[in-house]
Design a protein around this nucleic acid. Structure first.
Lengths: 218, 218
DNA sequence: GAATGATGTAAGACCTGCTCACATGAGCAG
DNA sequence: CTGCTCATGTGAGCAGGTCTTACATCATTC
């Protein structure tokens, strides 16, 4: 059987040029992202990714031990991107901690909405975080953004009334993740909300911070 | 090929007795629950369920249109059980609303922990809620418990300071679900928490309610 | 200009979902 | 009891998925 070979010219541009693809690993990851985005994490198959890349069904095994290894790689890249987005939202607490925290929340939901490929691999594909040390590290780095934000937030509280920063970070994470899972992901849009998920999250954070003893500025 | 036939005696006890199984639908659901619990929602296959029930691979199609239909059925049964557990936790607000609300939270996490089969079908299998009217109804009934609890909770607040009950219910649901997804499910036990998930949820609810203007009794 | 190692192919074992023609037997009419 | 009918299960098989093994090709390197 023949596997369609694009671009028979000598190494033209991006695609493959001859027997060797030249960029198969990245091409497979691209294919995985679009397949997960289109069909959910279970809708991604190794065989279809190979087909999209124009190689034989066995070729991917030269670059990934198995299907889950590719998925774990996508998840890790996703956590890297995720960390960057959360950090951009936080923006070192500028202009003020509360606004910046809400921007993290918006970034969280925006990521779930606009990066279904990554999000699916990270949270819906059943890949254990321990699959790879690199995966766990990437996940930890993303959470570290939340943890840092929580520290800045509770720093505004008077001594003796400060809850553990880790706990605050976990609360924020859980609330964001719950809203994303229930109302933003592929399995969302099924429950009608009385408000956008972003507003739901912002309101929840506001109430929570008031419970900690923070009143909104102004 | 032969499909092992247990109990050739005339209709002895539970299993199948001859050509006809007699209880295949329930047997398949049982198999699905144990397979999902053991291997995750993707680890359940129609063929393996048939094998566990001792019938041919084609037999399940007499009872379920396809694999997803069985999964949706399991999810619906799960929501029924879930609703019952949440209602038991709430116990009509006895002894007091705050305690009862925390009992709902405990019931939520306990369900995720002790019913991985149902939980997987409900939240991790990618079954759309719209798959079946009955599924959506079951899900709505479960959420109605939270909604009712939220109404009782905000009833204690003075007029003019009451947030929408629906919003409060959604916050509680999202926080519970986020904690369950991240720290209790199959994909959990991967992140080390400084406290049990139950304590994390209870602390979060306490802070949130204080933010609403409720102080704990005593 | 060969030797070598990385990358891709061919073929196939084995699995799953699902379909269709056919077999079985439980329940019912007489 | 006899015979019909229909729900339920079987056998066989197609399409397509994962993954392995032996082999082909080519870029690199000495």
């Amino acid at each position: 059987m023949k596997w369609s070979r694009h671009e028979h010219g000598p190494h033209g541009g991006h695609g493959r040029a001859g027997y060797h693809h030249g960029n198969l690993r990245e091409a497979l990851i691209e294919a995985a992202l679009s397949l997960i985005a289109a069909n959910g994490s279970t809708g991604f198959t190794f065989a279809e990714a190979a087909r999209q890349a124009g190689v034989s069904p066995a070729a991917p095994y030269r670059h990934f031990r198995d299907r889950d290894a590719l998925m774990a790689d996508v998840a890790q890249l996703g956590f890297d991107k995720f960390e960057a987005e959360l950090a951009r939202g936080w923006n070192q607490g500028v202009p003020d901690a509360l606004t910046a925290l809400n921007n993290i929340g918006k970034a969280y939901l925006a990521f779930a909405r606009s990066q279904p490929g990554y999000y699916g691999a990270m949270f819906e594909a059943g890949i254990p975080l321990n699959a790879t040390p690199a995966l766990r590290d990437a996940s930890d780095r993303a959470f570290a953004i939340l943890r840092g934000a929580a520290e800045q937030i509770i720093a505004k509280l008077p001594d003796g009334t400060r809850p553990p920063a880790l706990m605050v970070a976990l609360h924020f994470w859980s609330l964001s993740h719950g809203i994303a899972s229930l109302f933003v992901g592929r399995n969302a849009a099924q429950r009608t909300l009385p408000m956008p998920p972003e507003d739901l999250l912002e309101a929840g954070v506001l109430v929570y911070l008031q419970g900690l003893g923070l009143s909104k500025p102004g």
